[in-house]
């Protein structure tokens, strides 16, 4: 049985634990044994993207330490997976020992959907989700890891799910990590454009694979009083999308 260390990601840890449990369910259903190391915090992108390589390396070493004993490290985020896979090794260009460790981990690191489809070759989780959905391609997963067809393959096997692609699905939503709070006015225009495209698609639900984009777009959708609901695709695939959508109030009347 393949051992997988789940890199939960800090946004799932804080905002949407359901995505982490959904990822575990999917990986176990696909025949993996899943562990969640205690010492994980963050992949280091806030520091890395701010130009702070010293802090980034310290965090990267922590992640490498925590995950290198597993056959694979999998993250329900293209952005965090790309950080480990693409950006850790060059950080240690001058340090042969850590470089080798970073490269070894990078070669075994995957984004969740591409891991399920490309590595495990599991494409159908017998999920049901009766809704018209549109899908947002997160930039890092799309361009750094080639995550494009895998989520669509997985969605095509969900009973009742009808995919209504929005225009410009490959255009950034304006999240960009710290970008969205450093340049809030520019970010607002970008997420407003994105929210408009989501609404124009005619879908009732928007799905995606990265919590950063999902928090950003759902936050804008609710601000403009749209009733499009937002979930991480893992929640849908694992049959765990019965809870309120991201940013949606718990409907107490429906609770048993």
């Amino acid at each position: 049985m393949k051992s997988v260390g789940l890199f939960v990601t800090c946004l799932v840890d804080l905002h949407r634990p359901n995505v982490g449990f959904a990822a575990i369910a999917l990986l176990e259903q696909a025949g993996c044994s899943v562990s969640v190391p205690d010492s994980q915090v963050c992949c280091g992108q806030p520091a890395y993207n701010s130009g702070d390589d010293v802090s980034t390396k310290r965090i990267a070493q922590q992640v490498i330490d925590a995950f290198e004993s597993f056959d694979y490290v999998v993250a329900p985020s293209g952005s965090c997976a790309a950080m480990i896979k693409e950006h850790y090794p060059p950080l240690f260009a001058d340090d042969p020992v850590w470089l080798a460790r970073a490269q070894a981990l990078a070669s075994r690191c995957h984004e969740l959907f591409s891991f399920l489809v490309d590595v495990l070759q599991v494409k159908d989780f017998s999920a049901e989700f009766g809704a018209d959905v549109t899908y947002h391609d997160a930039c890092s997963g799309l361009r750094e890891l080639g995550v494009k067809e895998q989520p669509r393959t997985l969605m095509s096997n969900v009973q009742g799910l009808m995919l209504k692609e929005m225009d410009d699905t490959d255009v950034c939503c304006g999240f960009g990590g710290t970008f969205c709070v450093k340049y809030p006015d520019i970010s607002e225009r970008m997420v407003d454009d994105k929210a408009a495209l989501v609404r124009q698609s005619g879908a009732e639900v928007m799905l995606g694979g990265d919590m950063g984009c999902l928090l950003n777009i759902s936050g804008r959708l609710s601000r403009v009083a749209s009733d499009v609901r937002v979930y991480h695709l893992a929640e849908v695939l694992a049959g765990m999308a019965a809870i309120p959508a991201i940013g949606e109030a718990a409907n107490t009347e429906e609770q048993p």
């Binding site: 804080l14 450093k182 607002e188 936050g219």
Partner: peptide, 18 residues
């Protein structure tokens, strides 16, 4: 800077994933 243009979804529940 976040809430000037979008709502901030509140955490799903009262606990972190970990």
């Amino acid at each position: 800077a976040w809430t000037q243009s979008r709502d901030l979804p509140s955490p799903q529940g009262r606990t972190t994933f970990m």
